[in-house]
Amino acid sequence: MAEHVSLVVNGVPREVDVEPRRLLVQLLREDLDLTGTHIACDTSQCGACTVTLDGKSVKSCTVLAVQADGANVTTIEGMATADGLHPLQAAFWENHGLQCGFCTPGMIMSAADLLARTTDPTDDEIRHAIAGNFCRCTGYQNIVTAIRAAATTVRAGAAG
C-alpha cells in the first residue's frame, strides 16, 4: 500500500507516494531524480548516501522514505546557491578532495554536519567526523585538507 510523503528537499516542497519499504535514498534518486546521492553498500557502512535530515547527517539508505515525512532534507544538489558553490564544494575542488567523485557527495554532507558543530576542527576531529564515509581513491588526505580549508573560509565569512 502506498504511503504519502511530504517533505522539503533542497528548499523545494515535494509530495511523493511510496511503498513503505522505499528507502530515503531511493526516494531521492528514483522519485526526485536527485542522483547526486549515491549508493555504495548494502550494510549501512559506506556513507556514500549521506544527506542532512533536519540539519543532521544521516545515511539515507538507513532511513525509510516514510520516516522522512515532514522533514527538511538537503542533498549535494542543494549545497550550491545562486551566489556560487558552497565553501565545502569549492574547497574540495581547490584541494583535489575527490578523484572518481562517487563518495564525494556523501563526504561533503558529512563535512557539512561537522562544520555545523565546529568551524575550527583539528585534523583529528575532521578524520573522526568522516570515519563513517569510505573513500577508496584519495586516501582521505586531500579530503581532510579540503574540509580544513572550507572551515577557514566559513570562519572568515562569519568574521566578515
Binding site: 535530515l53 547527517s57 544521516v58 545515511k59 558529512s110 561537522l114 570515519a131 564515509n133
Partner: peptide
C-alpha cells in the same frame, strides 16, 4: 559509537 550519521539517528 557507530559514526556521526549513526549517532544522529
Amino acid at each position: 559509537i557507530g559514526d556521526v550519521q549513526v549517532r544522529n539517528r
